[in-house]
């Protein structure tokens, strides 16, 4: 009988059931943060706009990972795997940005691309007809 199998061995592996109240609270927090990020977008805050947008997204993502994805009660190693991937993505982004800002001129300096040139001509020729 499977029911008589010794489940006492499970000790710390016992699954955690998240209460409905907590799930609903997390859902409400996510809705509020979504409204907040749209609201912040309507106000001009200069370079802060993108920082706030990404910051709110990071908070939302943490809440989803901690509660919906159970990381808060999981084996911490699972959370570490997630954090490692995020660290490496961040390194990738930062190094790429540092690199590109060293020598890549903006298109504002290099002038139009061949595509932009062609599109401009296409619009111009249409007028001439």
């Amino acid at each position: 009988m499977s029911d008589t199998a010794p489940h006492t061995e499970d000790h710390h592996d016992e699954p955690h059931v998240v209460s409905f109240g907590l799930l609903a609270a997390v859902f409400a927090v996510l809705l509020v943060l979504t409204a907040l990020t749209v609201g912040a977008w309507m106000v001009d805050l200069g370079p802060l706009n993108i920082a706030i947008a990404v910051g709110i997204a990071a908070v939302k993502a943490s809440v989803v990972a901690l509660y919906f994805m159970h990381l808060r009660w999981d084996n911490p190693f699972n959370g570490a795997v997630l954090c490692f991937s995020l660290v490496f993505v961040s390194l990738f982004i930062v190094f790429a940005l540092v690199d590109t800002s060293q020598y890549q001129p903006s298109r504002t300096e290099t002038g139009p691309t061949p595509f932009e040139q062609e599109s401009g001509e296409a619009l111009k020729n249409k007028t001439a007809e």
Binding site: T37, W41, N49, I50, A53, A57
Partner: peptide
């Protein structure tokens, strides 16, 4: 969503 739709 914010990166594509909410650019100021």
């Amino acid at each position: 969503f914010p990166l594509l739709y909410l650019i100021h």
